[in-house]
Amino acid sequence: MTHDKDRLLSFYHRMLMIRQFEERVKMMFLEGIMPGTIHQCQGQEASAVGVCFALNEKDVITSTHRPHGHAIARGLSVESLMHELFGKSTGCCKAKGGSMHVGDLDQGMVPAIAIVAGNIPLATGIALSYKMRREPHVAVSFMGDGAINEGAFHEAVNMGAIWKLPVLYVIENNRYAASTSIEKMTALDKLSDRAAGYGIPGVTIDGNDVEAVYEATQAALAGARAGDGPTLLELETYRITGHSRRDPCNYQPPEERELAVKREPLGRFTGKLLEAGLATQAELDEIAAAVETEIDAAVESAKAAPEPLPEDALEDVFA
């Protein structure tokens, strides 16, 4: 199935925005001009964009310690994210979140939860609120492959299933929980087979094919909105950057990594757009230039924004 050109170009624009945002951030971390630590998602842009572009405005996502891509895909501005990463009060969480907690509920993203699997029960609870209030929205929980072995995954998915909640559980299977390969952590070939244990549908697709992700998400959302309950959607992908900022990925076999780089979503999608005549190089160049301009502006304004006052730390504990 093909989508109209505007949608395809919007996929491209947002995936490129994520990639370039992450590359710029990585560079600035390595230069030492950004505080904190980072967990990045280069290579996983299609899962973020394919899922989030299928959502309605009022749907809400919960994310992980690797949240930049989800935030950009959900529509948070790179400016608000860059300010947050730079620790400025003008950031999306007033510099009280940082890289691992970016989010903005007004834009459909709970501040990201950096305890692995800790965000999954939140999505179940958000979906419970939709069901109790008879609202037509869906909650989406992103998680990595490492999260499926946490108890919180089991407890949350089970409750989503027994109460037939409008929730979508999305595993971004990038094959590594930090440095440990998935084969060492589960006997399953397909992580979506876990779904059978909860009596819900499980679907595994190529998570580097943004159109396939979009369509699979649409199908799962339609079921959720119709009252059919959750789907466990496994998106097979690969992280072509380190787990965190200075990780050289020595645990990834070179041949596996080379293959993964060939399969990474942005290059594949670019090739498809050009080969199928869906976009010209000039059009893509124009999008790329706009992305660079936006990121440049975000970096400059973030650098220029004032530091928070130390005593600002005392605010926002209680409502």
Binding site: V110, P121, L122, G125, L128, E155, A156
Partner: peptide
């Protein structure tokens, strides 16, 4: 966690 998610909303 479900309670927290519902409360957020």
């Amino acid at each position: 966690g479900v309670a927290c998610g519902a409360a957020i909303m």
